[in-house]
Design a protein around this nucleic acid. Sequence first.
RNA 1: GCCGGGGUGGCGAAAUGGCAAACGCAGGUGACUUAAAAUCACCCGAGGUAACCCCUCCUGCGGGUUCGAGUCCCGCCCUCGGCACCA
Length: 904
Amino acid sequence: MTERNQQRYETQTIEAKWQAYWEAHQTFRTEESGAKPKAYILDMFPYPSGAGLHVGHPEGYTATDIIARFRRAQGYCVLHPMGWDAFGLPAEQHAIRTGTHPRETTVANIANFRRQLKALGFSYDWSREIDTTSPDYVRFTQWIFLKLFERGLAYQQEVPVNWCAELGTVLANEEVKDGLSEVGGYPVTRVPLRQWVLRITAYADRLLDDLSLNEWPASTKQMQEAWIGRSRGCQVRFAVDQAPQVDGDEPLVLDVFTTRPDTLFGVTYLALAPEHPHLKALTAADQANAVAAYVEAARHRSDLDRKAAKTKSGVPLGTCARHPLSGEPIPLWVADYVLGDYGSGAVMGVPAHDERDFDFATICGLPIKQVIVRDDPTRAADIAPPGVLDAAVCEPGRLVNSAEFSGLTSDAASEAIAAALEAASAGKVAVQYKLRDWVFARQRYWGEPIPILFPVETTGDPRAGADYRIDYSQPIALNASELPLTLPDLEDFRPGSDPAGALARALDWRFVQRDGRWFARETNTMPQWAGSCWYYLRFIDPHNPKCIADPTKLREWLPVDLYVGGAEHAVLHLLYARFWHKVLFDVGAVPTPEPFAKLVHQGMILGEVEYGVYRDATGQPVSRTDVDLRADPPVRRADSAPLSLERVAPDQVTKNKRGDFELARDAGVVLEARAHKMSKSRGNVVSPDEIIQSFGADSMRLYEMFMGPLEATKPWNTQNIQGVRRLVDRAYQIARSADRTLRVEDCAESEALTRALHRTVRKVTEDIEALRFNTAISALMVLTQTLQDLVRVPQAAAETLALLMHPFAPHLGEEMWACLGHPPSIQSVPWPSFDPALCESDTIEVPVQINGKVRGRLTLRRGLAEAEVLAQAQSLEAVALNLEGKALIKTVWVPDKILTLVVR
RNA sequence: GCCGGGGUGGCGAAAUGGCAAACGCAGGUGACUUAAAAUCACCCGAGGUAACCCCUCCUGCGGGUUCGAGUCCCGCCCUCGGCACCA
């Protein structure tokens, strides 16, 4: 190498040059596929935050970019787009703080994100860029809402919602953590509010069943299954003694859902949730005060309290219901372990066969009646005497004490009892879901307006201050031709105390007159999920003015072939998008039942590993093993002295025998050693800008792919980029110095070189297909080393290296290709092929094992028979030595792999 | 508590049931250099021997299946995610 020109690869100028070339030549513009096979390769598009990209974003984006470039080289027609999920709370809060219009913030943030993505050399078709806040896009988000509305899938409801006064908005259950808002950590209280709700529960079965159509991670499917939470059981109807009449003259009955109708004769009480609508009516006069006090206390208990208090509590209502089959009286109770919003808000208490009911009955002194015994002939007599059961028997078994059903198995009894209930008009087979309808209204400014009008009764012009009353019971859809309904310009974006939101103050926008009558617009906006529910459809035909996308094009491109994004979206985004897709499928707007055929989650990239030592107030170091970490701040176990955690530089750390890290000059002091999630507050965020600045975009891409498996959680380490940076330099030098006159066959090492080339092509091709980028890069490093060791590198060998390298390091690939005398772009060159026969050598080296230990090696021709291999093995000195005086019991010859001898 | 993923050198990691540690970082030695950086070459799990050969041990812990287990089975421990009274 010494006489070769060692000019270092100049990342700044070379990368800028090729990015400009791609832009000028529209290299990655998607062609309409025609006869070619198609590949729709999609990233989860980002929310363009003010902080810009962090290194976690490019991980998934690099993976899809590699696949996109690889597929193009293989002759696929590739759709690989990018856009912006640009509505959202941060821009609005920034607006509230600074008075800058969210539109301005959003435009600036998008420009910054786009610059950063382009600096990484991603091969997006930028002519398809989407912004969910643009009127062109909002038009169709609203159009889809109208479809939902037309089909009765969007309705209004007074819902007890999580109202956050600080944010001035309602939060979804999943946005509330421990009684505080997930964003900002403000207190949340439950208040009834008129909301738009989407009837996702109507699609529960299909959302569950169609998961099987998708090639998704099993864990993600399981999470969606758990979220939908389908359980089959029985709806049981309990008549109530002296039933009050509600809603007309029907006497009140209590419906409860159970998955265990076989335990029906074990019911000893019914428990109602504190939120149960008819609780008051069911309470006896002498219990009214006690019940009211209990309900009030439950209402004030935050989620936090309810989590802390594990013991159950309740108050009797002083009234009874009737067992639907036996007619026995069953006392009614209110208990806060019953959830108000699941099932009917009431449960039948079967203490003998349900852990929670058992706890409750034990605490409240209710009877425990066993009706199931284990169905085990060897232990026939294990019916506990009355009152002696020490834990609930939850497994199915055989029935006892259950009238004519005694003796049946749980399965048979469940069916028989359901039938008996049905015959008595006291119940039916039923399915219950955990999934709830989706609250789809936010009291915010920066979201899509909901395209609905309400009639207004008014004395004059409500915009001018006339009195008015809005009739929310008569929602009127806007006409599709009136879309998009855009946001009014506001000066003040604060939601204010009015739960109707900031838009309620935009009187000129809110009130419209038609045919002399006044109407009011809906002032709620859509949640941020709306835009991301269908953006993958718009990418297919982003400028279509007439419909979400041309049906022909949708048929051509759907479903998405590969969708890559974070596992944090495993449930919400992916479930909501599937729901909308199915509705659009029913409408006839999309041709497939499911949107995303294959899904992969990239793992999280953590900050650099940090070491820390605990110290007490005097500065004395305290071993981690002596620290009680449950306290806040952590304390020393011995005396509960409060401790602080101090960072320790990595070079002051050693590892001890037990595998713990210790202070190098203070052995025995065990350290805290962990990589943490990157966060601003921790100060461990790495920006792609600085990495590109010092190492180049190709090294950034290569490093993130080389760190480990795509799906794994991995700690960042800037120092490790050195390795892939060297790869870039070496590959570049090979291209610069390649000999254009030398053919591979004429090279001195021709046979070995041919084999190395074919094997590397095979390895890289297979690894890219399987998204094993780390091992593909490792193979490229090996090939680079092989070529570097040659005295003269044949042109064809350097070309193969360039072609294999370019999906990972596209700027380098183009530069190598140019150095090798070819016009751009390398992207238009077909992917190299390999010949399996040329991947293998004629001779192989196989180990010879004796009792599991390698004692020798044989160099053999392929395809030898066992007898011959054994003969050769026995002639090896080391093998002969180990066989001496022993009996050969067994030989195992795995052809061309390994020979194992078992001796005694 | 339940459901998932994971525990392999100083570090990131690799390994269709078939030679554990490929590839890379860091470290060490040498070459080049006045010197440093960069680059190049070699070494680099632990212990015994200690110059080499060689031997022994080693994939969180304990069992099992197998000629052969990081990989499969059973029982634990630790760790990271998710869910959490769902009747």
